[in-house]
Design a protein around this nucleic acid. Sequence first.
DNA 1: CCTACCGATCGGTAGG
DNA 2: CCTACCGATCGGTAGG
Lengths: 197, 197
Amino acid sequence: MAKIKSNRTSTRKDIIVAKAAKLFREKGYSATSMRDLAEHVGVEAASLYNHISSKAEILQDICFRVATKFVLFIEEIDASNRSALDKIEAILRFHIRQMIENYEEVYVSDREWKHLTDPYLSNMQSQRRAYRQRMGSIIEEGMRRGEIKPIDASTAVLIMLHAVSGIESWHRSKRKIEGDKLEDNMVKILVGGLKQS
Amino acid sequence: MAKIKSNRTSTRKDIIVAKAAKLFREKGYSATSMRDLAEHVGVEAASLYNHISSKAEILQDICFRVATKFVLFIEEIDASNRSALDKIEAILRFHIRQMIENYEEVYVSDREWKHLTDPYLSNMQSQRRAYRQRMGSIIEEGMRRGEIKPIDASTAVLIMLHAVSGIESWHRSKRKIEGDKLEDNMVKILVGGLKQS
DNA sequence: CCTACCGATCGGTAGG
DNA sequence: CCTACCGATCGGTAGG
């Protein structure tokens, strides 16, 4: 009964990282101090270091967890035998759902990864590059099959990815349409914009 | 011959603000120190304060200059008697061109405005809200006229605006297609995605 | 988990 | 435009 403990319940570290994600999103990584964070967690700043080793480590945790999730998903989709347009739609829907359900962490990993330092920074840069290339290949495949209209594939990728990250503005104003509606509208505009007419 | 001097040539302040825009884009507002900036300008940190009154003022200058430019453009377009879809296309093209030609400042005003402080922060927030509503109204007008397919107008606005801000990734990799091509591809996908088919 | 504290760096000012 | 310097705050450590 000893070793078990941080098994299914969220550890103290999980709580710290989650609070940090919220603050990093609101104020940015650099403008968030460890004293800010400590206050929101409810301890003194020094006490945070019993659970994490540095501020940088928190950002690494957030960024790589999110990145891994997206990479795993695109690999799964890419291995399936759907049409290219279906693949793009599935990826788009996954991005939107992640942005809605896991807002703080996804947002932070997208906007604050530049503050990673060097072994991690280059790793993240190459992961992002590879991900975009992967999406680009799917779009090019769709063009060859005549499913997608002739466009520059990397421009299309760029539009897809950044359009989704704009959900923040939606997220802030609760009143608007619910998540499912948002997802369908985005698909309608973006996938509709790719489709060969 | 006295008073004239900062008339058409760029003043020392202009140089400082331009260098600051570049640094704010690369590292973010909070992570850029006045000593960083001074070094890039080629003076001691204290000397900067002969031309600007604070770090915050530099950010204000950048954000409000960009915001004003966009507001003036949308007012001009909105007053014209084009079709709604043409108006949206013109706005989209203006955003893309601004992002390409005036990259550093447009990027900073879009990503770093949250670091403004209170009289300026609320001013900027309401300017951004008004701008989005204006674009939304044009899209709704287009839907009523049957030019634009039935969608949620504010979702469409959100997609447009954020898709454009993604040009950063393109900007970094010089090798890709040139500006005009980029513009046409974006219009094809985004305006194509709105069009009633 | 806390108190006490470190050296470094921050934005900015005084005074010339 | 510089030197010299300010108080505040930063991320992080020692030691209990």
